[in-house]
């Protein structure tokens, strides 16, 4: 009995926090999405309407949602393409001493401010910036610049789980595969990839969700590009209920994504 009370005291506060601050906030966002605004003062008026959700399905907003999904998917794919070979090198090829150094190199940018990194990319892609003067061309502000910047920002979140998966992969599995006559490519495809998949899925939860919700990097390097995050931001001042409907859409997308990821068993890897 005493033990049970102790457990309740231990778990109660964090659970309360989770329910009130996290789920409560989500519930409020969802409820707000059914309200409307006063046309003159932009104040929220609490009268029920489905208009906001209807508008989500207009071509404009489907376009924005599609664009945002495309950006998130591209960023995730680029992160995978860079992280897998890099993590492989770190975990399997590099000498032990170098390994710590490389790991630090991956982690250090995480300590720098997000804004500083985004502004660094802004100056790099601008006319006469580093990209322009080195390669003679720059994508300029917009879609490509945004994908580049986000890939750079979220790469560590992909490298770390993949690196851990490579470390966990027993050498004996690879040897057994070779002994059984598999060529390196077949080993990679049939032994390495399946054991990496949960790690990649875990990393993609970060890269995908962070890209999906980003609205600051977009404003810094995205030029006139409009994504879900900036659409929410624009509507927060002018039409809060519609902003809430847009927010609900992104939450829904993430829930679907997490459900899909759960099927790979990756959530145990987080």
């Amino acid at each position: 009995m005493r033990r049970r009370r102790g457990l309740a005291a231990l778990l109660g506060p964090p659970l309360l926090w989770l329910v009130v601050a996290y789920l409560g906030a989500l519930a409020v966002i969802f409820a707000t999405a059914f309200w409307t605004t006063d046309p003159f003062t932009n104040e929220v008026v609490r009268s029920f309407t489905l208009e906001n959700f209807k508008e989500l399905f207009s071509t404009t907003y489907l376009g924005i949602i599609g664009r945002t999904l495309l950006i998130a998917a591209l960023v995730t794919l680029l992160c995978i393409a860079i992280a897998v070979p890099f993590a492989f090198f770190m975990a399997r090829v590099a000498p032990r001493r170098l390994r710590g150094l490389l790991l630090a190199a991956v982690l250090v940018p995480l300590w720098a401010s997000y804004l500083v990194k985004a502004y660094a990319w802004r100056t790099m892609v601008q006319p006469d910036g580093v990209l322009d003067s080195t390669f003679g061309a720059t994508p300029g502000y917009g879609f490509s610049a945004l994908v580049l910047t986000l890939t750079y920002l979220w790469l560590p979140y992909m490298v770390l789980p993949v690196y851990a998966a490579f470390e966990r992969l027993p050498e004996t599995h690879l040897e057994a595969s070779a002994d059984l006559g598999a060529r390196p490519l077949a080993t990679f495809r049939r032994v390495v990839v399946p054991s990496l998949l949960p790690a990649i899925a875990a990393g993609s939860v970060f890269t995908f969700s962070l890209s999906l919700g980003d609205y600051i990097a977009v404003q810094i390097v995205g030029g006139k590009l409009q994504v879900l995050g900036t659409a929410v931001l624009q509507n927060i001042t002018l039409d809060l209920p519609f902003a809430a409907a847009l927010g609900t859409a992104s939450v829904l997308i993430m829930v679907l994504y997490l459900l899909a990821v759960r099927r790979t068993g990756a959530l145990e890897n987080l």
């Binding site: 404009t60 924005i64 409009q226 659409a231 624009q234 002018l238 039409d239």
Partner: peptide
Amino acid sequence: TKAWTEIRNS
């Protein structure tokens, strides 16, 4: 406001 959102999102 609607018109501006439409311009920005077009």
